[in-house]
Amino acid sequence: MILLIQYTLVFTSVLMLVALGGCFSEHSGVINIGLEGIMVFGALGGALVMSSLPAGSSAFIIVLLSILAAMVMGIIYSLLLAVASINFKADQTLVGTAMNLLGTAGATVIVKAINTAANPNNPSATVQYISARKAFLLVNGYEFNWFMPLALCLLILAYVILYKTRFGLRLMSCGEHPQAAASVGINVYKMRYAGVLISGLLGGLGGLVYITAGVSEWKFENGVAGFGFLALAVMIFGGWKPFRIALAALLFGFFRALSNVYTGFDLLSRLNLPSTIYNMLPYIISLIVLIFFSKNSAAPKAEGIPYDQGSR
């Protein structure tokens, strides 16, 4: 039971962070299908820092540096989306798809290059961070980590930023009606950059949280196994609103956790369902949710439409 709660909370943190990231990007008017790729790169940044820090580093340094690295990598990677979709008015779905493929391929190449450089007989794409990972744990022996309170703080911060600050008001105006925003002197390009980069920051962090969830090494060939896509579904289910996203993340996180630990439950293991059912569940639920929530979508009105200063 404790295990289920642990995993639920871990996956909830991941999904919530990444979905909040998507939420910022979409509120600025840019659809971010590339969250998956952003997560991979964030995870890569964090993992490399964790594996390369000397063994005796203090927990605080490890936590701080790996989080920073994940965020920075996420931001840098999300620039790919920002440049293409904001400056070059590219098809945002296409760019996002390319970023997802590039994320896994790029991270694999980087990790393999590092591994083979260290040892030519180790052409694997795995990064290990056994000791560093312990720095994140709140209580020894349990999978409760620093990310959970951090995610909670970021949730509240996201809400305040979106609904209580000048920045949030301006950001959302760019996603709803960029021409209106421009007419009152708001720089739509800048705000959209801000939205996309924040999604990079949160997505990158989410990637780090994901790969430290109960494991001490990560195979980068596998990317992040569709979590970026699941986060998109969470964002839509959450109606682009932070607290509802948190609840949606909790629900999805629970089902995802169930697929990891269902064997520990008498009732569930007696049902003798193939494990793939639990893997599938979150996706099936998202699909069903979409069926019921897509008709009157609360999506930002101008999302996906490139903004051009010249057009009125």
Partner: peptide
């Protein structure tokens, strides 16, 4: 060299196609 480099190239090609 990792063989995924060609995956990298083809995903880059999609990325550039967006332009």
């Amino acid at each position: 060299y990792p063989s995924e480099i060609s995956g990298l190239i083809s995903s880059l090609i999609i990325y550039f196609c967006a332009f």
